Computed example of a mutant assay.
Amino acid sequence: MPDAPFRYRSSEEDSARWAGFPFRDGDIVISTRSKSGTTWMQMICALLVFGTPDLPAPLSHLSPWLDWLAEPRDEVYARLAAQRHRRFVKTHTPLDGVPLDDRAHYVVVARHPLDMAVSLWHQSGNLDRARLAELTGRPAPAGPPAPRTPLVESLRRWVDREVDPRAELDSLQGVLWHLGDAWGRRDRPNVTLVHYDDLVADLAGRMRALAGRLGVEVAQPRWPELVEAATFDRMRERADLLVPDPAGVLKDRNAFFRRGRSGQGRELLDAATLARYRARTAALAPPDLLAWLHRDR
């Protein structure tokens, strides 16, 4: 008997909501850390599934975040049960926390951890905390918000923090835990790892490769339109349809698509902090994963 999935819980998520999920042949599970290309991969899957940029509903309705406590589990299950197209479901849970079903294909997206941390800092400032507390049944924040730690200092602290990776998945340890688990499963026929930087460098090639992995056939004349619809600029133009904000927790939806490039995390840190980052990651993940993740030559 396979091991039962580990239960990941936070104030906003609970991976136990996957328990009893009725999988179908061809289901796609998109497993990422926060700000690592989740919405981008959801859009790519939507374009491959529907074969057109004209989606029949907002992306968050087509591809719900199953673990998120802000939407009742029964409502999410009912929406997925009613879908007749090939389903693609979002999760921020590592693969050891979701049921691994042979009928499904699991796509894990990786991003350089420092770039992910920069995007997460900006995203944190765009969240309506009172609205989020209301949706998840927690007390509303009392008083004015505390001053935010400046980005560079926040990034330094993020590199140096010691936490339980399974308790804080958006920490450096949590990111490498998530990716390390997927890396160990990368040879399975129904697990695909995709690097954010590969999408930046060769979006058309990566989309074609993913279509092959998923067994999706796309007519040759359709490819240019689909690839164009998945570019950062086109997605930002359609923020109202594509931003994952069905419950209104973002202050500014347009700010969700901020830059879409790589390298800022490394640009912000001094040599000493970068050296500490390298030493810490070397102790947290195998060399072959880190070479792939960091794009080392």
Rank of each mutant, 00 (worst) to 15 (best):
residue 124 S to G: 15
residue 125 G to L: 14
residue 125 G to N: 06
residue 127 L to S: 03
residue 128 D to F: 14
residue 128 D to C: 11
residue 129 R to Y: 06
residue 131 R to M: 13
residue 131 R to E: 15
residue 132 L to M: 10
residue 132 L to A: 03
residue 133 A to M: 10
residue 135 L to R: 15
residue 136 T to P: 10
residue 137 G to V: 05
residue 138 R to C: 01
residue 139 P to C: 06
residue 141 P to R: 05
residue 141 P to W: 07
residue 143 G to S: 08
residue 143 G to A: 03
residue 143 G to L: 03
residue 144 P to Q: 12
residue 146 A to I: 01
residue 147 P to Q: 11
residue 149 T to I: 08
residue 152 V to E: 15
residue 157 R to W: 05
residue 158 W to M: 00
residue 158 W to T: 02
residue 158 W to E: 00
residue 160 D to C: 03
residue 160 D to I: 10
residue 161 R to L: 10
residue 161 R to G: 10
residue 161 R to Q: 11
residue 161 R to K: 04
residue 161 R to P: 02
residue 163 V to Q: 07
residue 163 V to W: 04
residue 163 V to D: 13
residue 165 P to W: 04
residue 165 P to G: 03
residue 166 R to T: 13
residue 166 R to C: 15
residue 167 A to F: 00
residue 169 L to A: 06
residue 170 D to T: 13
residue 171 S to T: 06
residue 172 L to K: 03
residue 173 Q to F: 03
residue 174 G to H: 02
residue 177 W to R: 15
residue 179 L to I: 06
residue 181 D to W: 08
residue 181 D to V: 14
residue 184 G to T: 01
residue 184 G to P: 02
residue 185 R to Y: 12
residue 185 R to H: 09
residue 185 R to F: 09
residue 185 R to E: 11
residue 186 R to N: 09
residue 186 R to V: 02
residue 189 P to H: 06
residue 191 V to L: 01
residue 192 T to Q: 02
residue 192 T to K: 00
residue 193 L to C: 15
residue 194 V to Q: 00
residue 195 H to M: 12
residue 195 H to W: 15
residue 197 D to W: 11
residue 197 D to S: 14
residue 197 D to C: 07
residue 197 D to P: 08
residue 201 A to K: 11
residue 202 D to S: 06
residue 203 L to M: 12
residue 203 L to K: 05
residue 203 L to F: 10
residue 204 A to K: 02
residue 204 A to E: 14
residue 204 A to C: 06
residue 205 G to F: 09
residue 206 R to I: 05
residue 207 M to N: 02
residue 207 M to P: 00
residue 208 R to G: 09
residue 208 R to N: 01
residue 208 R to A: 04
residue 210 L to T: 01
residue 211 A to C: 10
residue 211 A to H: 01
residue 211 A to P: 07
residue 212 G to N: 11
residue 213 R to H: 06
residue 214 L to G: 08
residue 215 G to M: 04
residue 215 G to Q: 06
residue 216 V to M: 05
residue 217 E to L: 05
residue 218 V to F: 03
residue 219 A to L: 08
residue 219 A to F: 05
residue 220 Q to P: 15
residue 220 Q to Y: 00
residue 222 R to P: 08
residue 224 P to T: 00
residue 226 L to Y: 01
residue 229 A to W: 01
residue 232 F to M: 05
residue 232 F to G: 00
residue 233 D to C: 11
residue 233 D to G: 14
residue 233 D to M: 13
residue 233 D to S: 13
residue 234 R to T: 15
residue 235 M to S: 12
residue 235 M to C: 12
residue 235 M to F: 15
residue 237 E to D: 15
residue 238 R to P: 09
residue 238 R to Y: 02
residue 239 A to C: 14
residue 239 A to Q: 10
residue 241 L to F: 09
residue 243 V to Y: 00
residue 244 P to E: 10
